[in-house]
Design a protein around this nucleic acid. Structure first.
Lengths: 194, 194
DNA sequence: ATACTCATGTAAGAAGTTACATGATTAC
DNA sequence: GTAATCATGTAACTTCTTACATGAGTAT
């Protein structure tokens, strides 16, 4: 049976011990979210599928009168995770509306490109802030498993790089877009292209 | 009527003049692909929807005995594109298997983290190569519309940054992963975490 | 001839989001 | 008491990919 990529997120989140679906969702939001999100609508059905396949085991562990099912990796599940980790990563998908809008900026009103770049900068500044908030906790756990912290720092460094790029781009766009650009450009346009 | 994000890719690809579905797909593969992909299975149905909505207009323009439908932006379509460009970009989705595997590397065999980083480096080296191949063509068109070239250079710069990060990460992992790490680490692990 | 590119499309299904529903516990 | 958090789940829907089918033109 083939597993979806998100199934491996679930298996992976159980690598250090039992967790409930709710806890997995929380862990995803605090960690892999910026490069791999997952919703309840995926996690809960996935846990059941994995249990049926014998890769995880569910156990009722209510807290007070609150029902709660905690899942544990089985040996088969751990092996499956290991096998997947042993394959070279393939999938890399990006949907970046900011880049798309910048790409089409020629069809926008004059000066809009710079605003799009500014919006992109703000997005990544917020991302940095959010990641910095979870950084201390991640650093504390790095002792027993260094990789999540490693990846978190990648996320921060990446967004910092984007912010720098936006600042450079801003300056470049100002040279590119003097007030009269709109008129002068239209003259140079190939007939085919208008 | 709401448009899907990919509908705007189609509208945007018509901003400089009429194109067939086939040509749109080609343009996507040569340009927006690295941050926004689109398949025939989206493009052709989308063109029909947009035509029904009056945002594009199709015209039969066979080449030889080969049927061919070419679409043009209507005024309404151009306005719709402009309105969308005037809204701040929101969507940013990443699915990065390499980061996910690195995140879970603690559950992999020793030394696997470094291999994942190496694979990531290769992926982005290939990306740079592909982008460099289309760079001259993009640079040539920058005269009439500078933005696609602008975004292309972002793509190259980004992948170059990733390659550098991978080189740094490689070195850091070697410090982190001396041969005996596996044993020593297990001792420091909290009981909750095993 | 045969392989490649041009050209358009559909069907099936995977993957993922959103909104909703339910109900207990905890903090103020 | 009431708002937030803990906890689980489903249904409807959107989005997107993959695989397939068809057929003409072009280059070797």
């Amino acid at each position: 049976m083939d597993l979806s990529p998100t199934a491996y997120v679930v298996l992976g989140m159980l690598r250090h011990g039992p967790r409930s679906g709710y806890e997995i969702k929380q862990a995803v939001d605090r960690s892999t979210r910026f490069f791999w999100a997952a919703s309840y609508g995926q996690i809960y059905p996935e846990l059941r599928k994995l249990a049926k396949a014998g890769l995880v085991e569910g156990e009722e562990r209510p807290q007070g009168g609150r029902r709660r099912t905690v899942y544990t990796l089985t040996d088969a599940g751990r092996e499956r995770l290991r096998d997947w980790l042993a394959e070279d990563p393939e999938l890399l998908e990006i949907r970046d509306e900011a880049l798309l809008k910048l790409f089409f900026a020629d069809a926008a009103s004059p000066g809009r490109a710079a605003e799009i770049v500014d919006a992109r900068r703000r997005t990544h500044e917020e991302k940095i802030e959010r990641l910095r908030q979870i950084e201390p906790a991640a650093a504390g756990l790095a002792d027993s498993d260094p990789y999540p912290y490693f990846v978190l720092r990648y996320g921060i460094a990446f967004s910092e790089w984007v912010v720098e790029w936006c600042e450079d781009a801003r300056r470049e766009l100002e040279e590119l877009e003097p007030r009269e650009r709109d008129e002068s450009r239209r003259d140079r346009r190939k007939p085919d292209d208008g």
